[in-house]
Design a binder for these strands. Structure first.
Lengths: 198, 198, 198, 198
DNA sequence: AATGAATGAGTATTCATTCAT
DNA sequence: GATGAATGAATACTCATTCAT
């Protein structure tokens, strides 16, 4: 029989890469880079350990890739919010929903793991430094300022408020990243009370 | 000098144990059970790796001991609050302050680590099951109910509210457990907005 | 086009086999059996790794085949020398030239690699034992004896002299088997001084 | 019982290091860096594999260390020859004996292995470049020149002669580095014929 | 009691070989 | 036949724990 053609092979390779990354995101998010064993990823993805290395150079490289994507994704989520034509408070609510949504939680957890794990590579650390909290605050500042202007957001130092808001969101995501979480994700309305006038 | 007597020796042993536990709590909290190497604890505590095993049977045993203490401590913190003679809102604020306080954060982080880490022993898992979220909710329920009764706490389902409150507190503790945290701990006033009428 | 007939297919098969062997000889000679990865041979020969196994049962089988050929070739080179109608010294000089010649060096290196590498199969070891140094000495003995008789070769124990001569030739071949060798191949005249009267 | 004191520990560490290096030199020399498995070194040295890593950072680091020593040693051997108060020919003969001597052969083999193995680290390659053949030739040039001057060494291009001499010596060392060598080390007298007038 | 050397089980990674297409 | 994806056994290295002193 004829060997697979270029396109078919490309398809297979792409599928596998996506599949492995998808699995790895969850496992890394849950167990961190130290707690995650290659055997877990391989087993969960249904491939042999050896195959993993045809698609990714190393455990660390994959971890870094996922961090990179997580951070790009998070920034892009925020940017997208601005294009909605609803009042500031609604924008913030929507953003909160997006973050609390299932897709987002793995990314948050991953970034948390990256920040806290021992044994992350220098390269990964450098990558993390490219997305400091300040960057997120600056992205949200115009939105929150507008919120204050129209009276939807409580008075007070905005940088601190945004920082706290992000910390809380991250926190609840992180502690809920596991399947049968001890904790539960709060309702959006409840979280919004931190920011908005009653 | 005369040789130390029985009691003095016991005292030394006890001091050393406390010292090691104190150090280990911080290291475990920061790096998790997988990220924490015995060499880190030994070095940080200023003892040899060998000596460690005179005081504790294993890494896991120590981890479990700390979890145990953390959970007992957390329950006792809550119980103590009830003895204050201030209005409910003030009690909750004080509890929040106690938790956010420096001592508390390591315990929270530890419990989080225990819940999320791969490679925790079965015994540790069993221990965790002895302190489910429900237990904390039940402990706080009378306090919050009283708060609602006197109009200091917002209306709404109390179990959910308490659960959310605990999740948020835990979350911010967890993501701030490391030294140079990416995030910051929110002010107590800000957190209280979740629960209280403006 | 008409499909290839039986013989043409056989021809193609044979050509390919020769091609792979040719490439493998160089790679094995350069890097040894441990240093040579199947991917190197496949890439260098321009075939897929999978195809290789249509032609050869295993890496080790190919290695053995090459050793076999190398040893047969070396014996035949020596035998051929005897048919020349020149004085003994000239015959030895010609043999030396043949050995030092580009073709020969890979074979020497290969035999050296086979003798020294860890991880050569039992079968290969057995093969090597079929061509002991003694065999080569015996082959050359009549030639060298004649050389001594006519006064072209220095006096002395012949077995030792031949053995040394072969060791030196092998040695210089071996250390020059790589492309950009640290060392250089000595001129034939210089080597002949070992054996001949000035 | 009291723990070992500083000096005793230092002694143990030193002994072990020497012991491991001694064994590793032989094993690396024989099998190259690819052919040498850590289990071989550990077993041969009578230590566990784990212990190896308390003394050396990695297989490659040890290999490099040994290369370094081998090269320093070889240069120093040559330099020492100059201090003898014998005629040039005698000096060269002594040098030849020193090199052919048991201690030397492992070093030569090691350097050969380093030059030929695939998979040697960049660092090791750089190290090798610090000791090019030219350096050895230059070291020996004055000695050989003096030999020619006093009529003990044959006429001819000196650089080429030294290079050939070193190649031949290296070659015979390399192919004799294994225990039950197929080949044999030639007598010094025989090798000297390459250089000297009869 | 105290130390740090020593062990060995476990983990990431490589690579010869097989398999589906 | 031909391809390269897939497998799994082997190998370098790490680290909790034990042991000799």
């Amino acid at each position: 029989m004829a060997p697979l053609n270029e396109e078919q092979l490309h398809q297979i390779r792409d599928d596998r890469k996506v599949q492995i990354k998808h699995v790895a995101l969850k496992v890394f998010a849950k167990y961190g880079i130290n707690g995650t064993k290659m055997s877990m990823i391989a087993k969960e993805a249904g491939v042999s350990q050896g195959l993993f290395y045809r698609y990714f150079k190393s455990k660390d490289e994959l971890f870094m890739m996922l961090i990179q994507e997580a951070m790009e994704e998070s920034v892009s989520s925020i940017e997208k919010i601005y294009s909605l034509s609803v009042p500031p408070k609604e924008k913030i609510r929507t953003l909160t929903e997006v973050i609390l949504d299932d897709g987002g939680k793995y990314y948050f957890m991953l970034i948390h793991q990256a920040h806290t794990s021992s044994g992350v590579s220098e390269k990964t650390k450098q990558l993390l430094e490219q997305y400091p909290l300040k960057l997120y605050i600056d992205l949200l500042l115009p939105l929150f300022r507008e919120g204050q202007r129209v009276g939807e957001i409580v008075e007070g130092d905005l940088e601190e408020m945004i920082s706290s808001y992000l910390s809380i969101l991250s926190g609840v995501m992180v502690i809920n990243s596991q399947e049968n979480s001890f904790y539960q994700i709060p309702k959006v309305d409840l979280l919004m009370r931190i920011l908005t006038k009653s």
